[in-house]
């Protein structure tokens, strides 16, 4: 089925860092559930949300489950529209090569346009 035939445009925006709070983990749970509804889903990483997909996480010593590998699974849920803000990456000294997935890099200017394009979106 082509993307145009899908239902409503919905988006999850990640903008908080992982582990320090649960926002991004439960945001990811929301992405996985949304994926089951056969809608036109996008996922956007901005601000500290980009840290949620940093590679090389080892969380055993803090005793919190490492959920970054789950981000790799979201394509299996037919969610292929993944975006990341260029400046958020650069200002944090990271590139897409440091990430567990490779979202499309967009400019800050495109962020609101992407939000405006959705029927509804949530920020975690």
């Amino acid at each position: 089925m082509g993307e145009e035939e899908k239902g409503e445009k919905l988006m999850i925006v990640f903008r908080k860092a992982p582990y320090g709070s649960i926002y991004s983990f439960e945001g990811l749970e929301n992405v996985l559930i949304m994926g089951a509804y056969d809608q036109d889903i996008s996922v956007l990483f901005i601000d500290d949300g980009i840290y949620a997909i940093k590679d090389g996480m080892e969380t055993e010593a803090v005793g919190i489950k490492n959920f970054s590998p789950t981000f790799r699974a979201i394509e299996a849920y037919d969610i292929e529209k993944l975006y990341i803000d260029k400046d958020s990456l650069e200002s944090r000294g990271l590139t897409v090569d440091d990430l567990v997935i490779q979202p499309k890099v967009i400019d800050a200017e495109e962020v609101e346009s992407l939000m405006e394009d959705q029927k509804n979106f949530f920020m975690f």
């Binding site: 239902g7 409503e8 919905l10 749970e29 929301n30 559930i33 949304m34 089951a36 509804y37 809608q39 029927k119 509804n120 949530f122 920020m123």
Partner: peptide, 16 residues
């Protein structure tokens, strides 16, 4: 949690 997706589909506006 799917009930959040449902309201995102059905509501004109979900305010967070």
């Amino acid at each position: 949690l799917g009930m959040l997706t449902e309201v995102a589909i059905e509501a004109d506006r979900v305010v967070q």
